[in-house]
């Protein structure tokens, strides 16, 4: 899929890349993690999803950090500490960005953006908020 060829290197071509939606190339986080399913002995492993969210990043820095970040997310986060998992079947193309067949505005990736618009920026003049009075 990557580089127009058959070979793809998950770490080089997917991990830590910008995720964008298909319609408007709207940024929706980074490919923070890749989920691979290990199947029966005779079948090769299969990539099933891309993960995005602070708990995934915390796990990569140190597995001990992950529960702390998840706990903080549950207490304070808009996404309640839940990691956003995008099925691999939704990946449309891999180039400078990873283009996904999802609508960014309806996805958990923009939960914080929407929360800030509803609770903060709408009250500040000049923000261009659609909710701005």
């Amino acid at each position: 899929m990557a580089d127009g060829g058959d070979e793809m290197h998950l770490v080089r071509d997917v991990l830590d890349k910008q995720l964008v939606d298909h319609a408007g190339h709207d940024p929706m986080g980074m490919a923070d993690g890749i989920v691979i399913e290990v199947r029966d002995v005779n079948q090769p492993p299969r990539v099933i999803a891309i993960e995005s969210g602070f708990p995934v990043l915390a796990r990569r820095v140190s597995p001990k950090l992950e529960p702390i970040v998840r706990w903080l997310g549950r207490r304070l986060g808009v996404r309640r500490g839940i990691v956003y998992r995008i099925p691999w079947s939704r990946v449309r193309s891999l180039d400078v960005e990873v283009e996904l067949d999802v609508d960014a505005d309806r996805s958990p990736a923009k939960a914080w953006e929407h929360w800030l618009c509803r609770h903060v920026t709408r009250y500040i003049p000049g923000s261009g908020n659609f909710l701005e009075s």
Binding site: P27, G29, S52, W112, E113, L116, T121, S127, G128, N129
Partner: peptide, 21 residues
């Protein structure tokens, strides 16, 4: 850019809320 949020000084703050925050 590190966390893949919408960014750009040419965007209205509502279109890049975390960036503006």
């Amino acid at each position: 850019q590190t966390f893949g949020w919408a960014w750009g000084e040419n965007k209205k703050p509502a279109d890049a809320a975390r960036f503006s925050m």
